[in-house]
């Protein structure tokens, strides 16, 4: 018996997947904060919060689109088209999030109260909800189908 066991080899496929994770973390943070700043504007009528929301939504959708395009190219190239079947819920979820966020960007261009109450706030909440579900789908891709894990096939 050797005095110590060799450490297990890492199973994380770092480069490609980490880039996707990094890109995707922007919309997750931005859309969540936009919901918070929308609520702050709704409660205070302080227009500073509306300005925060507008920039957060713009940053969120910009990185969201980049992350989605990156995923659309990287995942099939790395794992083959077979993965699309399992990734379908994630793909649809991502599209829903981006469509909701796009509409929300437009709604937030209104001058003042109607940029947020009621539709801006509603869309911000729906975006976060759709994002939670999508992230859950995406995580199940890693755990159930070993996407982002080396030697999966």
């Amino acid at each position: 018996m050797p005095p110590y066991a060799p450490p297990p080899r890492s199973t994380a496929a770092v480069a490609g997947h980490v880039i996707h994770r990094l890109l995707a973390s922007f919309p997750i943070a931005c859309f969540t904060l936009a919901l918070a700043t929308d609520i702050a504007y709704w409660r205070t009528s302080n227009l500073m919060w509306l300005e925060f929301s507008a920039w957060l939504l713009l940053a969120g959708i910009t990185f969201g689109v980049i992350a989605a395009l990156y995923g659309a190219v990287y995942v099939p190239v790395r794992f083959g088209l077979r993965i699309v079947r399992f990734a379908l819920p994630t793909i649809i979820g991502t599209l829903v999030v981006l469509i909701l966020a796009f509409l929300n960007n437009l709604v937030h261009t209104a001058d003042g109260w109607t940029a947020v109450v009621p539709w801006g706030l509603t869309l911000s909440a729906l975006t976060v909800l759709a994002m939670l579900v999508t992230v859950w789908f995406g995580t199940s891709l890693v755990h159930n189908h070993s996407v982002g894990v080396r030697y999966h096939d």
Partner: peptide, 24 residues
């Protein structure tokens, strides 16, 4: 489970289209 996921996903697409119709 996949079918369940798909149903959830299409429900979300539906709700976003509804929101679009209401605002649009």
């Amino acid at each position: 489970t996949d079918r369940f996921h798909l149903n959830r996903a299409s429900a979300l697409v539906g709700s976003s289209l509804l929101a679009f119709a209401l605002i649009g």
